[in-house]
Design a protein around this nucleic acid. Sequence first.
DNA 1: CGGCTTTGACCGGCGC
DNA 2: GCGCCGGTCAAAGCCG
Length: 320
Amino acid sequence: MEFTSLLNSSLDLNSKPLRFIDESPPQVKQQVLESSFIGLGRNGVNVKEEKGALIEELNRVSAENKKLTELLTVMCENYTELRNQLVEQTSKNMMNGGVENSNAASRKRKAESSNNNNIDVLNVGASESSSSDEESSKKLREEHIKAKISSVCVRTEASDTSLIVKDGYQWRKYGQKVTRDNPCPRAYFKCSFAPTCPVKKKVQRSVEDQSILVATYEGEHNHPQPSKVESNTSASNKNSNNLGTVPCSTSVSSTPATVTLDLTKPKAVQQESTNGRGTLGSPEMQQFLVEQMASTLTKDPNFKAALAAAISGKFLQSNN
DNA sequence: CGGCTTTGACCGGCGC
DNA sequence: GCGCCGGTCAAAGCCG
């Protein structure tokens, strides 16, 4: 793993002491240590005792450093394993299809869901319809729109009570309902960027975690993403429904999948989370992971203690 | 003044 | 047929 080496280099604070102890000939060590204490005006016994204590301390710190390095290696291995599992799971979900909307417990929504799963069968068998061509084509269009359903989970600040999911498109709210299976109201949005755009969006807070907004997109946009257009034309944005030049890429896709965005995290992270496959190994993502690991490590009191010991060891060595 | 949000009313599908 | 429920409409109000 690439960032393992990065972290190793930054964490190996006792690399010099290690080399000093392990690689230098014993005579040189003795000379250096003794000469270091010549100017201190101490007697020989004290100097020898202190030297022994320091070497012992250095050995201890070096061993601790080695342990930490091993621990980090294990962490990195675990991370790699988890990442592989995530990628595997994501690709499985993409292949299986189907909308996993835990909030949609109603009968009707169940029926819709089954329709979506069998959309290919419906399209193939559409010719058996006895209605007129106009009606059947209309039905097909509706089914096609329904087929383009994707569910997106967006984590927001708990204090944020609005049902706004910033995804780069312009939405007009046309209704709000409290549904039976969820005490939180469900908001209904239509894409307002293009009058002919058939895309609809439903936004509702998750029952389990109310800081998570579940946005369900129906249909496919027949126009470019407004925020991209606006960023190209430097137009001012009156509406708040986009993230400027860095929108959450939650555009409707034909492959039903649930994506979780964390709006409480930096935008770059959101993008990586949204993109999911293929970008986990990108330099930006690795940089973020390195920062994340560093942040996690610095919050660990044990790590802090070990780091302090290592630094104090280094200081002692440099003073000597 | 135009566009957006709010919210109560209405509609249609479904189960009993 | 009735009631429930999700989805949509549209009038009123708000805001820049």
